[in-house]
Amino acid sequence: MRLILSYAKLGPMAFIAHLDFQQLWWRIFRLAGITLQLTQGYNPRPKMRFASPLATGFQGERELLEVFLGEGEQNVVGRLNSIMPQGLKVLTATEVPLAFPKVTALVDALAYRVKLPHSLDSLECITREAGDYLLSAQLEGKELNLLLKVENQRTIRPDILAGACFPGFDKAGFPIIRTGIYAYKTEKTSPVPAGLFLLLD
């Protein structure tokens, strides 16, 4: 059984580094009594893939994680959420076919909300610095919403972008939240069950 979970990583959980975070998930599954399938090989590990690792310090409102479980597991969302520490919450679990592409291969764009120290007159600097990676940028007061392209698993970090345009940009006082992980090449994701991805038109 192959599941794609969407989850939120908020508040203090933003400061758990990715490797620790992965082990934390393994442990939460063990505590929930849900057995993860293991990888083949000399040192088997639970089969688990994050769509896109989140930088330490960033919060995520809708992250994606792919896992492989035994058949017939019931109420996975409820069982996991009964164990989750504060700030970590599973939102949805969607079963996908085993032949479905790897979740890492589906990622085409990442959306962020960056709180800026002050509003901007123009987005010229952001547009220039982001170059081809910028799909869209919108300013709502002091909040900058960015949609950044992922190509061959490369992208540009929103803190670097903001840092380039705001001398003294302080990511600490102005937290960065990843609001979504997007796939926009619809032909590749055609077998995606409805509601899993935030698809672009």
Binding site: P12, L31, G87
Partner: peptide, 8 residues
């Protein structure tokens, strides 16, 4: 993560 508590 040393300083946030919040453990299970």
């Amino acid at each position: 993560a040393r300083y946030i508590g919040n453990e299970i």
